[in-house]
Write a protein that binds this DNA or RNA. Structure first.
Lengths: 214, 214
DNA sequence: CTGCAGCTGGACCGGACGGTACCGAGCGCA
DNA sequence: TGCGCTCGGTACCGTCCGGTCCAGCTGCAG
């Protein structure tokens, strides 16, 4: 907690330890849950002493928060990918293929084992970490939704598509696309993610039901 | 574990104890989760000794299973209610009001605090109780979906509606109806359930998007 | 070379938890 | 009325966990 202004030589030698702990804790938490994971196992998995864990994070709850908020970085990256995909559209006939590709990626990510495990983990602890759960939801699934909605609005603005309410359409697309699969998957850990044909079928169906273009 | 054939006098005097334990355990599990609930607290809340808990259920896991599968009885009752609502439809012009009423009830139940808490609880323990989680999903949300699909198919058979794929339409209705709300609510425990206007808006939207009638 | 800061391994603590052993009370049966 | 058996209450056991403390080692700065 040093507040030295213009810190001259940031000693980054402690970063590897922190990163290793976060990585190890992420794996353990995702696999076993928060309560069932002991700090001893985390330290052992990170090849670090337990004291170092407590030096870096203070207590187990803070470590958990670091883990949960840490993975939202990948959600940000995913959002950027989606934004870029829609921003690359130049001509009206490119809209549908781009949207189909976006939906495919979206479903694949939302139904990937890691994302599902993270959802289970955060939902499981939502009662004990309410603000953390809300923050995760805001930064990950909801942020993706907003990103897609913004992408749709951008298409409209550039005269490439007609969408009345981009926010609603984005949400409808998402939940017709993978709502049922997501619901099922949350209760069935270990289920393999959808294969290519299944993804195509999901996208086809969502596209048919919601009709995002006009 | 006595297997007396033709047990003459069923001693139902132990039923109250069992029922009290299940009721108390349900409240505790829903509020605190499986791991954070001690059998001592359950026994105390049920006004019963811990020994009685172990006499009745053997161990904590079996008690948990009894709790989770116990609440699926209410899901069955709810399914019967929905079936009756659609079975009461006699004339084509009654279809839409009946469906709107059904969707309202469906959303209200799916987004009720107890159902949400149960979802969180079972999802949280899905890793440690895979078959139990699968069974719960099969008996509660999936059963409701199948019930609604069967009701739609029945309407079709009686010439009161035209629905191409009742299973898909039921799922689409459900997830356009409350998919987004359900997702949000899972991460925000303690949020009040939707009020009457919100429910109406959800139903309107789902009806507009999915158009179940032809 | 010397000091120092931080890491390591490990012992340790207080407490909580799942599960059990034991014992007294109450009930059915004669 | 007496007897035996079953059931519930209490006290207890072993274990594990979050968190702390300590002594020794290591690598960098001056």
């Amino acid at each position: 907690m040093r507040v030295d202004p213009a810190a001259p030589s940031g000693r980054r030698r402690d970063e590897p330890a922190r990163a290793a702990i976060v990585r190890a804790a992420t794996e353990q938490f995702l696999a076993e849950g928060f309560q069932a994971t002991s700090t001893d196992r985390i330290a052992a998995a990170a090849a670090v002493s337990k004291q170092t864990v407590y030096n870096q994070f203070g207590d187990k709850r803070s470590l958990f928060a670091a883990v949960v908020l840490g993975v939202t970085a990948t959600a940000e990256a995913f959002g950027a990918e989606l934004t870029a995909a829609l921003a690359a559209v130049r001509r009206p006939e490119e809209v549908e293929p781009a949207l189909r590709m976006l939906l495919r990626r979206w479903a694949a990510v939302a139904l990937s084992p890691r994302v599902l495990a993270m959802r289970r983990l955060v939902i499981a602890e939502a009662g004990r970490f309410p603000e953390l759960a809300a923050e995760y939801h805001r930064r990950a699934p909801e942020a993706t939704l907003r990103t897609v909605a913004a992408g749709l609005a951008d298409l409209v603005e550039r005269g490439l598509a007609r969408v009345e309410d981009p926010d609603r359409v984005a949400a409808d697309l998402a939940f017709v696309l993978f709502g049922a699969e997501l619901d099922r998957a949350l209760f069935h850990p270990g289920t393999p993610p959808p294969d290519a044909e299944r993804l195509d079928a999901l996208v086809d169906h969502a596209f048919r039901v919601v009709r995002p273009l006009g």
